[in-house]
């Protein structure tokens, strides 16, 4: 029995997912020993944020077959909402330092970001994706992609028009001493941002795996006709998927407001990175996206450390192109195809 398990493990290690995960763990450990633990902390915090954005992107792509170019803009919406909720809260905290809002105020802001993102998702489904789907589904992938390009330009410039182009940021969510782990100081904000993203990704995974609604979403992603036959309300599932995906991006934006102040094009960097993740990990694979998010953030952090700031688009994109050449379906690629891809 144990021998059998051993050979299974060895096969897994030899496969592309095993190999890449092992290599990235080794690289992460080596770099941490070489440069210091702050590198690992950076990687984990960025990776957690990226996992949120990338799972939303994967969801859109896997279930609805929309290659979302506007996902960064939902990140921006999240950070904007959180900013406008948290600014009055922080003023209140200044006057009343003993209030319960000191601890729970940030959570309200992040929750607001989540709700704001979900509402934005519903609105864009109602106004943009729904009409397109009802009119025609031929050449759907390309058409919806161009549509999201339009949505992205629209949202970026609406932000600039209404709220201005300046940085809308905060100093930090939680005041308090940084936590010290193995000689590395982690600010409370970073630690809690990571915990929030970890909890949400875990909840999301459980939701997709065990609840009826999550199963319905996965059913729709595999076969829309079959899902309709067994009585799943497609319109409802589509709406839910879009709002979930947008909420995931927005919550990432909200919880990282202290790192990324809100300005019109704040969403570009998370968008690029999330696309790296999705291409790297293959379509429609949530666990793959989470693993991919950490690999990409490792790539980024290591590039910044050893090559220099500003190279963090060149090196990861070159590596990902290499991967695409040799493994076009991504490292964790699955054969699940989306609904409207015919």
């Amino acid at each position: 029995m144990s021998k059998h398990n051993m050979s299974d493990t060895v096969t897994w290690l030899k496969s592309a997912p095993g190999l890449s995960i092992v290599i990235s763990i080794v690289v992460a450990v080596a770099a941490t020993i070489d440069a210091g633990p702050y590198l690992l902390v950076n990687m984990v915090v960025t990776g957690g944020m990226l996992a949120l954005v990338a799972t939303g992107l994967t969801l859109m792509l896997g279930v609805l077959n929309i290659p979302m170019f506007a996902h960064g803009e939902y990140f921006m919406i999240g950070s904007l909402t959180a900013y406008y909720i948290f600014t009055p809260i922080s003023e209140f905290i200044l006057e009343h330092p003993d209030s319960w809002l000191v601890t729970f105020g940030p959570f309200i802001a992040i929750l607001g970001a989540l709700i704001g993102g979900a509402i934005a998702g519903v609105i864009s489904e109602k106004l943009v994706f729904g009409p397109l789907r009802r009119r025609s589904t031929d050449n759907w992938v390309m058409n919806s992609f161009l549509l999201t390009v339009g949505v992205s330009v629209l949202l970026v410039n609406l932000h600039q028009l209404i709220f201005g182009a300046d940085f809308k940021g905060i100093v930090g969510y939680w005041q308090g001493m940084p936590i010290s782990i193995a000689g590395a100081y982690i600010s409370l904000d970073r630690a809690l941002a990571f915990i929030i993203s970890a909890v949400i990704v875990a909840l999301f995974y459980l939701f997709m795996t065990y609840t009826r609604t999550g199963m319905a979403i996965r059913a729709v992603s595999q076969d829309i006709t079959g899902a309709e036959i067994v009585g799943i309300d497609i319109e409802k599932i589509v709406m839910l998927t879009i709002s979930l995906a947008c909420a995931l991006a927005a919550v990432a934006g909200g919880s990282l407001l202290f790192m990324y102040p809100s300005y019109p094009t704040v969403g570009l960097e998370p968008l690029y990175m999330a696309w790296f993740v999705v291409i790297l990990s293959g379509l429609g694979n949530i666990l793959g996206a989470v693993a991919g998010a950490f690999i990409v953030s490792l790539l980024k952090v290591i590039t910044m450390e050893y090559v220099g700031a500003g190279w963090d688009f060149v090196v990861p994109s070159a590596l990902i192109m290499l991967i695409l050449i040799f493994k076009p379906s991504g490292i964790f690629g699955s054969d699940v195809r989306g609904v409207l891809d015919k």
Partner: peptide, 27 residues
Amino acid sequence: ISLRLRGIFAACLSWFFGLAVMGLATK
């Protein structure tokens, strides 16, 4: 290099290529 890819993947590849070239020109 985009020969094996179709549709949106080829678009992404050329996008990443463009990002890399732009990064090079900046750095």
